[in-house]
Design a protein around this nucleic acid. Structure first.
Lengths: 163, 163
DNA sequence: CGGCATCCTGTATGATACTG
DNA sequence: CAGTATCATACAGGATGCCG
């Protein structure tokens, strides 16, 4: 049997739960549509109708989330030249949006391993063709497992100091 | 100025959008509450009332999501001995739940960098004390950037073969 | 093609109250 | 402490139709 044991750990400081960045992030891309639009942006989709077709959402939903993602700085709306003379608009990943890649890859791989999905495509490194994953590491490059994680209060933050 | 340029890429195969593992994953932990409950589990929380207090959600919400997360295999409900003689129940991460760590770390770091949050705590490696991140790598350990990602159709999957 | 406006349904979640 | 039940609200998202 695969090991499935409890990992004994201390409970993280309570102040970690206030102003949680995960909470904020979920507020921006925490809906199915918004997350799948981000997926599509990484897949190379740029045009409105392609988002609608490939994410399989209603145009209204695409409209709302594309606007919100632009407002949140993950996507940028930019003009481009059509084959015709019309000016068209496309959505591309900003630097901030590109930084979202680990989230997308992590969600993809977890679902592939644990959510019982038939996945028809793989994400690989173009230079060597091997699958791409996320790893959890510290600054020294050590692989960090759950048991060696530590949650520490930042010294420059006061809970309720007298100022 | 920080570079914020478009990364030219091919559009991924359309069949990647069917049965998408990101979609499945979002169906399981795609709500704010469910994701924050997972965060709390990584923070070391195990008891019902601690989830309610630390995630700051209604008991009903905690009840629903804890049950669903157990049903989805991310958490396990287990008895433990109280200081008194009563038997109590706690929720702990299963192996599948522990594998969710990269998602939580990635969401945390993206929000910290891009979502303008005051974060009072850090996540570090206990052995060296340095911050913990996610990296996107291939099997050979190469760091993979957006420009070197490739989306390839798996050969063993037929789109609509006659079988 | 690339949206926005409106209507309608389902889900997520908080508030409150009740049970063992 | 550890939930469950009920009610009410807010938001996600589909369907439809209109507009440049």
């Amino acid at each position: 049997v695969v090991q499935d044991e409890a990992v004994p750990r201390e409970v993280a400081p309570r102040q970690l739960t206030t102003g949680c960045p995960i909470d904020k992030t979920m507020g921006i891309v925490g809906s199915r549509s918004a997350m799948l639009i981000m997926r599509e942006a990484f897949y190379g989709t740029t045009r409105f109708d392609d988002f609608v077709a490939r994410v399989d959402i209603a145009p209204a939903t695409a409209s709302v989330h594309l606007r919100d993602l632009v407002a949140s700085g993950l996507l940028a709306k930019e003009p481009y030249r059509d084959s015709a003379t019309r000016t068209r608009w496309g959505y591309r990943l900003t630097r901030s949006g590109q930084d979202f890649l680990p989230v997308v890859i992590a969600l993809f791989r977890w679902g592939e391993q644990h959510a019982d999905v038939e996945v028809g495509t793989d994400i690989v490194h173009d230079e060597c063709g091997t699958p791409v994953w996320t790893t959890v590491v510290c600054e020294h490059g050590h692989d960090v497992s759950l048991g060696s994680l530590q949650f520490v209060a930042k010294v420059d933050v006061q809970l309720d100091s007298g100022k």
